[in-house]
Computed example of a mutant assay.
Amino acid sequence: MIQKLKNIISSQVSYKNRILGSIVVAQLIVISVFTFWPVPDQVRTYQDIVFTDSEAIIDEVQITTQKSSPPPPPRPQVPVPVPNDQVIEEEILTLEDIDISEYSDSMSVVGLGKVGDSDRIASNPQLPPSIIRIVEPTLPEEAKEAGIKAEILVSFLVDKKGQVEEATISQIRLYDKDSDDYRVVDRVGYGLTNATLEAALQWRFRPAKDQGEVVKSYTKHWFNYGF
């Protein structure tokens, strides 16, 4: 019986020893883990940063300069004209080589009468000029022989006295001899326009009136030849 009790007590002591040994081993393992576990670098906080003077922070300031663009090209010099002493002889034009008759019978011919006063010219008067005397032109013999059939429209500038101050050719109609067909031309020849203007300057009119006032004004009339 005593031997049995010894055995029981011995087994209990052995069990306790194993438990205590296991606890010790576990503690050692835990201690070794915390001891040899890798620790990361410490993070510097705001309090850890020590500010120094600006001269210590900025090691070296490098001064940079902007590259300048090349200067613009110089302005081209304007050549200075050099006067020369060359004499240019003017060509003298003589009127002997010009046939004036070629230019004297066209619409560009203007007949001038007596110069009137300098009052205004009414372009559209209330009462236009009215004819009080007509002078028929003398038809040149050359035009008669050629059988000219034409109409010439004359523009009159009538002054305040009813006289023709200016007469111009406005239109020339040259008709076919055998029909009533016509064409508008610039000249008719045979001295016909000169004869027309010579007669037109002798016409007399009752002057125009505008707002009860006698004024200068224009009027037009046809001269017929060969009808």
Rank of each mutant, 00 (worst) to 15 (best):
58 I>A: 09
50 V>L: 15
49 I>Q: 02
59 D>M: 09
47 Q>C: 01
37 W>T: 11
37 W>E: 02
57 I>T: 04
40 P>C: 06
40 P>M: 07
47 Q>W: 03
40 P>L: 01
36 F>W: 15
67 K>D: 03
69 S>L: 15
65 T>P: 02
51 F>S: 07
33 V>R: 08
56 A>P: 01
42 Q>S: 10
55 E>F: 01
52 T>L: 09
54 S>Y: 12
49 I>E: 03
49 I>T: 08
70 P>H: 00
66 Q>G: 02
63 I>P: 01
71 P>M: 10
52 T>V: 12
35 T>L: 10
46 Y>T: 00
45 T>F: 00
35 T>C: 08
44 R>Q: 11
51 F>M: 12
52 T>I: 03
37 W>R: 12
73 P>T: 05
53 D>S: 14
68 S>H: 01
61 V>R: 13
68 S>W: 02
70 P>T: 06
56 A>E: 01
62 Q>F: 15
49 I>Y: 05
54 S>N: 11
49 I>L: 10
74 P>F: 05
69 S>I: 12
64 T>N: 04
36 F>K: 09
44 R>N: 05
71 P>A: 14
53 D>V: 07
40 P>D: 09
74 P>A: 13
69 S>V: 13
65 T>H: 12
66 Q>T: 13
54 S>M: 09
33 V>P: 02
40 P>N: 09
60 E>A: 08
59 D>C: 03
64 T>I: 14
54 S>C: 06
44 R>M: 06
34 F>E: 06
72 P>C: 04
68 S>D: 14
60 E>Q: 09
55 E>Y: 07
73 P>I: 06
41 D>W: 02
51 F>W: 04
42 Q>R: 15
66 Q>L: 10
65 T>M: 08
60 E>H: 08
41 D>P: 08
38 P>C: 05
57 I>K: 10
32 S>L: 11
44 R>S: 10
72 P>M: 05
44 R>C: 04
45 T>K: 00
47 Q>N: 15
38 P>R: 04
42 Q>G: 05
52 T>H: 14
49 I>R: 02
